[in-house]
Design a protein around this nucleic acid. Structure first.
Lengths: 334, 334
DNA sequence: TTGAAAGCGCTAACAT
DNA sequence: ATGTTAGCGCTTTCAA
């Protein structure tokens, strides 16, 4: 099919070594030789095989991207970010969409390893110690995004969930809200504890006591349910676990005839694409997706380059920022 | 680092050929040999290098997935579907996110080819004849999803956009609507013409004349704008180019105090995840994402297997289905 | 500046 | 049933 380096060498009357050198530009060559090689390559439409190169060089310039929690609305954003950062550094991305169960996920991990990816980025999965072990054994650089495995020593970069949730609650407090509820997510969601804590931090600092806590399911339905349960309380502000939850709350409140933001203010988390288009547009905490992806890729690259910076002892926290839209408004003390 | 086939061979006291055979299971081996090989492989945590295998076999069991139109809300769904279908058939996915300009996209294509992907699935990109040429020259099987390049002869699978839009309009007509508007997308969107035609088909069949046409931008903002312009007309139903456009329309109508679906019914297209959660939940045309992805992968596989079924002359159309929610309702003749 | 040759890890004839 | 060996397409010493 495609032309090989031998074809190019033959056509230009030099050795394959010379072709390789000219094409890589690593070693100077006589101008005349250069020209001939380049011409031959062009004429034959030669594309070096990265497979052969990988075998020789023992690196594929490829990163595995394992995304398990596909229900995560924030998934497309992070895939985008990682792909872009990788491409910039000359890495390709092999995508692995985690399945439903942990077993299938381990299988994916194996596949990535067999494909000899140079490193692996794992996003918000249900990583277990077993995964970590497997990873450790094969010595493939790995970085976790938005999740940690306790005691695995795996390097991690995550959004500062706690700080983000605090930001959300503080925004409400600054607007004069005093009775604030938090609609959380089940405990198995990596960030649920931290976000709840963030809301408490803000309340406590302001001397407002404890937030009212309701639990959703991380999705719209759960958010709506939880908000309904909150309707008879006298809260004026809600910090939702994420945007999906917030959208559910918006819906439930509308159904109940409670105006947002006049009667109750709502803050989300993530800033998914559609957050700008809810009704009213959602005030939310934007995760630093770009930075998360970039950091993950750069750190894998560093690890590959042998810069073992002793990281992984504690996760790197990246700051989110608040995006104020129309689902929150000032509220004097009642 | 990792153990090689030589290590396993040495440890189990057989030749590498035997190891290869035992592991692949292609040829029967004596039970005792089998055991020893398997044991050695396990002990060494041996993972065959798919790189070396690819070089030998001249196939990587890898498909390239080029997604350019990243603004397409339908993007995550199709990535999911393609990945799943590929995985099922033992293919991995190399992801390439198209850039802004056509040049960057060509670069991506080259990269995929250098990576020696066995086939390429291209989703809804701004494919040009130049791309098609490049593809043709390298003889890599390609299938296009939801887009065609006129005269390129590239096999294509797409949603039956025209039929889908007709379904949408017919739904409205059955509900008693007579004055229907279509909010379309700019002409450069692959499906815009077909969807507009679909609406006209339905109107004409029902003897209702031409639909009122407004043009959005394929996004929420454009949908809102276009809907505003429609407010003073006397239409009672809107078929939007896609869900984003429909969401924009929903918003504009609410702002204007026009009830959906009491005063005006709205139908979207795509059935993105959030369509079920708009207010009111959106009646829409669901693209057969699963089938699209599966078909694309299977067709590439067929091509790879040498089944040149003379396809590609005309695109394969997959039927969408209507999902009726609450943004549409019956309406007697006024 | 260029060439010859070894070798990356595997598979598949071809032998035995 | 198993071993020997060539070779996939490249890069990289080592020589010249």
């Amino acid at each position: 099919m495609g032309a090989t380096i031998d074809d190019v060498a033959a056509r230009s009357g030099v050795s394959t070594a010379t072709v390789s050198r000219v094409l890589s530009g690593s070693v100077p060559a006589r101008a005349a030789t250069r020209e001939r090689v380049l011409a031959a390559a062009r004429e034959l439409d030669y594309r070096p095989s990265s497979i052969a190169r990988a075998l020789k060089r023992q690196e594929t310039r490829t990163l595995g991207l394992l995304v398990t929690d596909i229900t995560n609305p924030f998934y497309p954003q992070i895939v985008r970010a990682v792909e872009a950062a990788a491409h910039e550094r000359g890495y390709g991305i092999v995508l692995a969409n985690g399945g439903d169960d942990a077993a299938r996920e381990l299988e994916h991990l194996d596949l990535l390893i067999e494909r000899r990816v140079d490193g692996i980025v794992i996003v918000s999965s249900r990583m277990t110690r077993r995964h970590a072990e497997r990873l450790h054994r094969t010595a493939v650089p790995v970085v976790l995004v938005n999740d940690t495995v306790a005691g695995s020593g795996l390097p991690t970069v995550t959004t500062a969930h706690r700080r983000g949730a605090r930001l959300a609650a503080e925004h409400l407090i600054q607007l004069g809200h005093q009775r604030i509820a938090h609609i959380g997510a089940p405990a198995d969601q990596a960030a649920s504890g931290q976000r709840r804590q963030g809301v408490r931090d803000a309340m406590r600092r302001a001397g407002l006591g404890e937030p009212l806590i309701a639990i959703g399911d991380g999705g719209v339905a759960g958010g709506a349910h939880a908000a309904e349960a909150l309707i008879d309380s006298d809260i004026t502000g809600i910090v939702a676990y994420n945007d999906l939850t917030a959208i559910g709350a918006l819906r439930a409140l509308r159904r109940a005839g409670i105006g947002v933001p006049e009667a109750v203010s709502v803050v989300g988390f993530d800033d998914i694409d559609l957050a700008a288009w809810t009704d009213p547009p959602l005030t939310t905490i934007r995760q630093p997706t770009e930075a998360l992806g970039r950091w993950a890729v750069e750190h894998v690259a560093d690890l590959l380059a042998g810069h073992d910076d002793g990281l992984g002892i504690s996760p790197v926290l990246l700051d989110p920022e608040i995006v104020v839209r129309d689902s929150t408004s000032a509220r004097g003390t009642v």
